[in-house]
Design a protein around this nucleic acid. Structure first.
Lengths: 195, 195
DNA sequence: GTTTACATGTAATCCGTTACATGATTGA
DNA sequence: TCAATCATGTAACGGATTACATGTAAAC
């Protein structure tokens, strides 16, 4: 039932809950204490988004009345949620992803671990790379055709954008190389044993 | 009169109209044909935003009935608009600016040309630099304290963020240096503006 | 002479922000 | 005991996206 796409926040929530079932406050804390803050926001966004996902059947809520005085609504992924998340993780990076600066490309990459095969991750990074290369050419075209009268600041601002995407390109290459070097990719989720 | 802050889009509109009076369509075209697309969006955002700014007294609309068959509403900055824009351009870059990735820091820089003194631009870039340095330390702390169990993808995603801000830092330094070299009288000896 | 692109908007829907509400737990 | 903090939300408001509406000029 993926009628209509989800917001970036909703996908971030799917991805977090996929790691382990979480309450709204658990999610809030992740956003408050990690660089995921980029996607976060306020409880006023998180709680309604969780409910929307539950209403759509992508999450299921379990009322946990035992452990706490106040009931906690602990959300977990449903089968449909798994599928929606998985489908999203495999979406290629588009020009719009870059222009909008939504952070979605990196979010997808970060959440892909253990849910997408190594080959699919590499394919995803390839779409990222190609889109970056193409958009970089576009921006460099703008830089070339920028009239001198446009002024120093706009030129510097554009240069900053170009540098940023070039850095992303280097990152993509380096990340792909590191992933290629990993042992047989996690085909399906495999438990990590830490040592 | 500046009750409540404006949205980034609204400031972008103020900045564009400040360059030369523009109609909604003119603005739309700038967004559609330049890297300003980042802040853009649809007519459905632009036109209402222009009206809001007019209602607040920051823009004044002139109905241009002569040049075109259909009347164009051409917007120009009012005195209040000048002041609101100028006040915004001088706001320091905050941590929230970075976390949210709104693009506001660069937008302010790009729009500052000719409206803010060279010294103020350099001071602004200094706030940008300091905020970047501080946020970078925060992110590097996260990287150090990230449990090994967190996995490869989140670590790479964080590394990408750190690299990006480091690139911004280099850009800030280089931009400040270029701006320092501008508009110096031929006889003036260079003074140090370092911090 | 009709399609296509230009130019200027409006309307419905919906998401996110801000601020508030409330109950439990802990520290002074 | 009183305040602060943790934990879990709700409500009002407003801006943005998407889609639609409409009227002119250019192209074919």
């Amino acid at each position: 039932m993926p009628e209509g796409a989800l917001t970036t926040l909703e996908y971030a929530l799917l991805g977090l809950v996929a790691m382990r079932p979480m309450s709204g406050y658990d999610v809030h804390r992740v956003f408050a204490t990690t660089p995921m803050a980029h996607f976060s926001s306020s409880p006023g966004a998180i709680y309604p988004a969780l409910r929307r996902l539950a209403r759509r059947g992508l999450l299921k809520a379990a009322l946990d009345r035992a452990t706490e005085a106040r009931p906690r609504r602990v959300y977990a992924l449903t089968r449909g949620g798994e599928e929606a998340l998985h489908a999203w993780l495999r979406q290629p990076v588009t020009r719009e992803d870059l222009v909008r600066g939504s952070g979605a490309p990196i979010l997808r990459f970060a959440l892909a671990e253990g849910r997408v095969s190594k080959e699919e991750v590499l394919a995803y990074l390839m779409t990222y790379r190609r889109t970056l290369e193409s958009y970089l050419e576009e921006l460099q075209g703008h830089a070339r055709e920028m009239p001198a009268a446009a002024g120093l600041h706009p030129r510097l601002a554009l240069e900053r954008g170009i540098r940023g995407y070039q850095g992303d390109l280097e990152w993509v290459r380096s990340a792909a190389a590191k992933i290629r070097r990993t042992g047989r990719g996690p085909r399906k989720r495999r438990g990590r044993v830490e040592g």
